[in-house]
Nucleic acid binder design. Sequence first.
DNA 1: CAGAAGCGGAGATGCAACCTCCGCTGCGGG
DNA 2: CCCGCAGCGGAGGTTGCATCTCCGCTTCTG
Lengths: 231, 231
Amino acid sequence: MTAHAEDTHAGDRGERPLRRDAERNRQRILRAAAEVFTRRGLDATLDDVAREAGVGVGTVYRRFPDKESLVAELFQERIDALVTVAEEACAASDPWQALVSYLEYAAASLAGDLGLRQLMMFATYGRDRVAYARERMRPVMTRLVERAQAAGALRGDFRATDVPLIAYMLASAAEYASPAQPGVWRRYLALIVDGMARAREGTSELPVPALTPREIEESMRAHGQRSSARR
Amino acid sequence: MTAHAEDTHAGDRGERPLRRDAERNRQRILRAAAEVFTRRGLDATLDDVAREAGVGVGTVYRRFPDKESLVAELFQERIDALVTVAEEACAASDPWQALVSYLEYAAASLAGDLGLRQLMMFATYGRDRVAYARERMRPVMTRLVERAQAAGALRGDFRATDVPLIAYMLASAAEYASPAQPGVWRRYLALIVDGMARAREGTSELPVPALTPREIEESMRAHGQRSSARR
DNA sequence: CAGAAGCGGAGATGCAACCTCCGCTGCGGG
DNA sequence: CCCGCAGCGGAGGTTGCATCTCCGCTTCTG
């Protein structure tokens, strides 16, 4: 979202600019791909993207040599955001709040974007870019955790690598519940945050109601459909 | 593992018993299927099962009309266990311990058995049996939770439906980390349990070390391989 | 030892994803 | 304004995988 409006993708190495209709289609494809990969994950087909964009598959393949390039171009920005937000959190005044906020940000990112989640957690596409992002993230995360511990708020046995795993768990819950109640992950974030404190008197209020049994069944059914299951 | 040794599957409606070699193969197939579906999930092929069992695919299909029957026969026992253990927990003396123990049991079951997890959480196979199990589970779970709350140990906003979701989250973490450290889920269980308490002074000790950055990368890579990713 | 039960595994069938190809469309520089 | 060429659509080639069938051969057992 922080992209410059005039990102016509010309000028990168003196290629001729695209014809106007072609450029318009290119933008449509990017928008459609964002939508589709975000919602349905990286397993979505380029045929799906083309349909969503209202163009033919051929058009997609003329513009992007393969799925990987499209994915890389799409997610670069969001991956960078995960790093820069962490860096900003490091500079915040309240170390405990900073850590909690970042955890919430990371979980929200992965929970709301199945594609990003697969990209960051499974090395299927764009290995190098993701590895680089992780590398930059590591010291920042460590500092974030250690500051919260030094402030006496965070339990001493918490580690920097717990952050991505917790975000992943929450995103899993989010994906599971998404057909019925996409926000429940916040409930479990609150629970975990209460577990991360060094000590506490009462409990924070869980911000979302639990799923009803009916909603669980709804989620089950929805996932059952999508998954493989012949006859 | 609690099965009777003499489960030759004859007598169910007066069918003739199988020839001795056939019965032996049938057992081999069941053993192999348990192994394969537990480790690799329900997406494993019946060809995989046949190979593991050391028989031809044809043999598998002669004995079990389709994948679903085989899966149903295999997992019935384990599904029932999830219910009966919950019932037993309801009778335990310490309500808080009972709830925590059950959570641990459920998480361990799902974490160690990808097939069971898919069966219980996604309605791909054996819908009816699973629905029935859930139905029986519901009141038991509610009672388990309410007892722990009445004892003053469990926070008041915890709900019965949180149990399966927490188990699912932990199982997700377990699956993710399985290539490097299959036991980390216990770390997050401890964290969550600390979050479930109505209040606490210190922290329980996290029972497993966090993943190292190296181990996270290892997990990433391993999952990337398995997943779809042409060229 | 004969006839029935059982076996193996090649391959029919069906499906889905990736990507190519080519005849048509419509943009835009002269 | 008009025509050459960039661009378009989407049917279909190719590949790969999973389910299940079929039939000539083997192995039990009465």
